[in-house]
Design a protein around this nucleic acid. Structure first.
Lengths: 117, 117
DNA sequence: GGCGTACATGTCGATAACGTCAAGTGAATA
DNA sequence: TATTCACTTGACGTTATCGACATGTACGCC
């Protein structure tokens, strides 16, 4: 079981390496400190190898993406800067109506700051 | 090597289980589907066991935290739902003054929804 | 004292990921 | 054609994690 997440991981890893960072397997191998053949094994969608605790961290660090993205638990590869945490947390607890209102207001403030693009 | 992240993981796991979710090891074992002894092994700061690919995902799912938090890559345990992405990105581009204003307004809306705890 | 709960610790064989290496494909270039 | 590059694939022995189980500690409670 759990064959599901394995395939997603393969896609996410290749996507992050190629599209996001434009690296070859050898270059990622260099940055992450693990052999390029291991990366190839990981990126094979039909493969069986899954990263260990350490190797997952190495890959995420080298690619500068979240591990949740690599694992397919989040669709967003960027993390959450601490500065926005408090505000973000509050927004999470708003009703949908209020959320929309907040979003509209924030957009207004953005436009005010940059009158012309 | 990499003994560094192992200890942090032990702390984060226990912290998420006890402080964030208020669960016993047995309860987390139940929710995550792995034996409570495994959880005890993981939470031992001097231990050597590290979660596999699958078990890390199981723990993060059961605890509703990010894997980046468990791995010590992020100090924030909450992830970033897609619905909040646009809003989140907008907020990033606000001036500090506007950010404070937005936060104050959002807090007002929160209190309105939950007048009394 | 005797119970139950929560957790720690260690051992066992089985399975899985590890790094390494060799050999391969396919596409681009000289 | 020969060479190089990016990557694939399979196999090897080594090491680490796996679940299961037994045992032990420490606490509160009746």
């Amino acid at each position: 079981m759990e064959e599901f997440g394995r395939k997603l991981f393969a896609e996410r890893l290749r996507d992050a390496r190629e599209r996001l960072r434009g690296l070859t397997q050898a270059q990622l191998a260099d940055k992450s400190g693990l052999p390029s053949t291991s990366i190839s094994h990981f990126e094979n969608p039909e493969g069986t190898r899954k990263p260990s605790f350490d190797n997952l961290r190495r890959l995420a660090n080298a690619l500068e993406v979240t591990t949740d993205y690599l694992l397919g638990r989040s669709d967003d590869h960027i993390g959450m800067p601490l500065a926005a945490d408090a505000l973000y947390r509050d927004v999470q607890n708003l009703t949908d109506v209020d959320k929309e209102f907040a979003q509209a207001m924030i957009k207004k403030m953005l436009e005010k700051n940059q009158p012309k693009e």
